[in-house]
Simulated scan of single mutants.
Amino acid sequence: MHPQPPRRTTHAYGTPRNHLVYDRWGSFGRPVVLLHGLLYDRTMWWPVAADLALSSSCSVIAVDLPGHGQSAPRGDYDLDALTQDLAVLIAGLDLHRAPVVVGHAESALLADGFAASYATRAVLTFDEPVEEPSDCVDQHLAAADLGAIPDAYRQFAVARRDAGLLRAYRCWFSAKARPHRVSPTRPRSGFPHLRAPASFAATLRDLL
């Protein structure tokens, strides 16, 4: 009889000022931290996380950015402060291993900022923005290549139409982020984690 993969559990970290909600698969191994881009939420990672969780060598964490999903909005979306919150959240997992951090779109800045300040096994980023995001939701979404996502996975790429979030996160682009790419390997096509979740999960296993 084959062991069953770990089930997804939902958790909350922090106080009302820095509240973050995340899903977790597995309790052992190396942490793999999955970060979504602006206007989306942690559910975009469920197909990849479910596949990756079949491996007993990692514990998968998918986090809602502040103001997204179930994480509370903040008065200040400072990148350094959120990087520190993410580090405390990861330390609280008690896995005692440097994480693999994956950043989709704008969260590439958060992934790079984390790796610049904290021990990190590898960083994988993709769909990075080439410029500061527009305040126009339609323009922001038009830049996303959703057409190639199979119908079965399209439900995981539903954006929140909130121009206020785009404005709130503009501070990330005024900060002088220090690029720090532990792993230069990155997918190049739009939403590769939903176009081929099993293939994307295999890429992450190679980084463990």
Rank of each mutant, 00 (worst) to 15 (best):
G75A: 12
P6I: 03
D23P: 10
A105V: 02
F156E: 07
V33T: 02
L93Y: 02
A177Q: 10
D51L: 04
A168C: 05
L65R: 07
H180D: 15
K176N: 13
L194W: 06
E131I: 02
A111S: 12
P16Q: 07
V48Q: 05
A152F: 03
G37V: 01
L146R: 07
P192F: 08
T83H: 04
T203Q: 13
Y169T: 00
P187M: 08
G190V: 00
S174E: 08
L20Y: 02
H140D: 01
G14T: 09
A175W: 05
A143L: 15
L141M: 15
R160F: 03
G164N: 11
A119N: 03
P47S: 10
A81T: 13
V182T: 09
V100R: 07
G92V: 04
A168D: 04
R170S: 10
G29W: 05
A49T: 09
L39E: 00
T10V: 15
D76L: 04
E132D: 12
D127R: 03
R121E: 14
D127A: 11
C136G: 10
V137M: 00
P150A: 12
A105G: 09
T15P: 10
V137Q: 00
T15R: 13
F28S: 14
P129H: 03
S174T: 12
R74K: 13
Y77E: 00
R42H: 12
I61K: 07
L207P: 09
L124D: 01
H2D: 15
R178G: 06
F173D: 01
L65T: 02
L207F: 01
L82H: 03
P6G: 06
V60R: 05
D162I: 08
P31G: 09
R42T: 06
S27I: 14
A62Y: 06
L95T: 08
H68N: 09
L34C: 08
V48P: 06
D162R: 15
A72Q: 08
H36D: 08
K176L: 12
P192H: 01
F191H: 12
T125W: 07
Y13G: 03
G75D: 11
H2W: 12
P187L: 04
G69W: 01
H140Y: 15
D23C: 07
T9S: 15
R205I: 02
Q4L: 14
A142K: 14
V158Y: 08
W25E: 01
Q70L: 14
L82D: 02
L34F: 09
S55P: 03
A144K: 12
